[in-house]
Simulated scan of single mutants.
Amino acid sequence: MSGHPAVVSAVQDTVARDGTSRSASRLLSEEKPVHRELKAELASPLGTEDGSPS
């Protein structure tokens, strides 16, 4: 799947939007919006909180 055109396109879009790295852990450099979005998407079907600070 890593070479699938949809995956490649999604990666390119994400890198263009968010860059490749903050050069530090999320603890030190805070979360990117994509981290919060991912946690919410993973928690949603389970009906749980995503664990993000308010």
Rank of each mutant, 00 (worst) to 15 (best):
S2K: 08
L28D: 14
S25N: 09
T48A: 10
P5Y: 00
G51N: 14
E41W: 01
A43M: 00
E37S: 07
V34E: 10
P33G: 03
S29L: 07
V15K: 04
P53V: 15
K39V: 02
V7K: 02
T48V: 14
H4K: 05
E49C: 05
M1E: 11
G3I: 04
D13G: 06
P53K: 14
A24T: 09
L46W: 10
L38P: 00
S9N: 08
R26E: 10
V7D: 01
P45K: 01
D50M: 04
H35F: 15
D18N: 11
S29I: 02
P33V: 00
V15A: 05
A10M: 13
S44Q: 07
A40K: 12
T14D: 07
G19R: 04
S52V: 09
T14P: 01
V8L: 12
V7A: 09
K39A: 12
E49W: 05
Q12I: 08
R17G: 01
E30H: 10
L27F: 15
Q12A: 09
G3Q: 08
M1I: 06
S2L: 10
S44I: 00
R22W: 09
R36W: 02
R36S: 08
S29E: 11
V8Q: 05
K39Q: 08
E49S: 11
A10W: 10
G3E: 09
H4L: 04
L42D: 03
G19S: 03
V15P: 01
P33E: 07
P53S: 15
E31K: 07
A16T: 07
A10Q: 08
T20G: 04
S44W: 00
S54R: 11
R17I: 05
E31F: 11
S21T: 15
E37Y: 06
P45G: 02
D13E: 12
H35A: 15
P53Y: 15
S2M: 09
P53N: 14
Q12T: 08
S25D: 11
A24P: 02
T20K: 06
G19P: 03
A16L: 04
G47A: 00
S9Y: 02
R36T: 09
S21P: 00
L42I: 13
H35V: 15
A16V: 04
A40F: 03
L42G: 04
S25T: 15
T20L: 08
L46N: 07
S9L: 02
A16N: 06
E30W: 11
P33A: 03
S9D: 06
G47I: 01
V8Y: 01
D18I: 05
V11D: 05
A6C: 05
L38H: 08
A24R: 07
G47F: 00
G51H: 14
V11N: 07
T14W: 07
D13S: 13
D18Q: 11
A10Y: 06
P33C: 00
H4F: 05
L38G: 03
G19D: 03
L46E: 11
E41D: 08
S23R: 13
S29R: 14
S21I: 01
R17F: 06
